[in-house]
Design a protein around this nucleic acid. Sequence first.
RNA 1: GCACGGGUGGCAGAGUGGACAAUUGCACCAGACUGUAAAUCUGGCGGCCUAGCGCCUACGGGGGUUCGAAUCCCUCUCCGUGCA
Length: 325
Amino acid sequence: MQKSGKSGRSMLNIPKVVVILGPNSSGKSSLGVSLAVLLGYEKTKEELNINGAEIISADSRQTYKGLDIGSGKITKKEMLGIPHHMIDVASPKKTFSVVQYQKYAKKAVNNILGLGKLPIIVGGTGFYVDSIIYDMSFPAAPPQMKFRKRLEKLNASELFEQLKRLDPERAKDIDKHNKRRLVRALEIIEYTGKPVPQISRTYEYDVLKIGIGFPKSVLKERISKRLNKRLDNGMVEEVKSLHNSGVSWKKMDDLGLEYRYVSHYLRRMISYEEMRKTLFAEIQKFAKRQMTWFKRDKEIIWINPSSIKESPTEKVFPIVKEFLS
RNA sequence: GCACGGGUGGCAGAGUGGACAAUUGCACCAGACUGUAAAUCUGGCGGCCUAGCGCCUACGGGGGUUCGAAUCCCUCUCCGUGCA
């Protein structure tokens, strides 16, 4: 794996990008905004020779229009005038995947850089973050729905056998129980006529990664508070109106978490209390999965807001400044 | 007081003489991640270790029957229900 770091920077003038990541309910969005605000002050701009900052959201659900409360989307007001990208760029009735995301997000990053500004990538979808900061080129094999439908009828071991025959290399490290991955691998082979290519992960930018890491018990508390608040603020209504506007129940299930369980409640499959309890538990599990992803990356600088005297912003801003200077 | 029913691992809940350290779900722990990534998927989950298909302690307490009991019998105890 390639390393960005200071060595790379000293040799070439690689554009700089800051990433703010962490599990949900960790306060990424507001940290991102306040950093951008600080970077927008005239004095800072002069000092760092920068033109301010803009934000790129790396959240797979916030790309969809209408998924606001449920996805914990930042509000216009909370943006404090800082431009945000990759929010509300897709219709929830359609599938928006990492490839589209990557294309537009990279464009946005480069535009921001072109303005002499710092792109701040803020998000909890690790895969999406990676798709921007690394030079990942996904195989040009768009989803083939009929093909998938056909393969989905087979069980995992049958799919695995096929893959082993067609692409022993990919079969070596694929998860042989995961039908979704197996189907996709076979789809790539079917469409390109070639084995599944290796994806490179070299850095595209000079990246500073900041992670917000609360202790588990604190995060749990934050998740609970935030969930209740969002329920009070009309989350159920939001899901109801999404469905009324044509988002299918099936799609709600795919969207997961809030959309999945609130829709179960609306469909009278579970009670309100069951919904709340399940959601609370599922969101925590999700936070864990997010952390599992992030833990692999040893370059992330973690800060734990509950163990420091100053605010996260006060803690992080100097780190960003140093990175930029 | 009598009569039934029941007390199983953190919880729920199977098992009713050997294949049971005990199905399953939840909770918990850990992990994967090549166009659905809030999705999808995997492993662990009584204790101990020289990690073996090894040893120990276990299915409310005690005692018994049996080669062998979570499973049968006796007794105590607790909970539920019905009758007094």
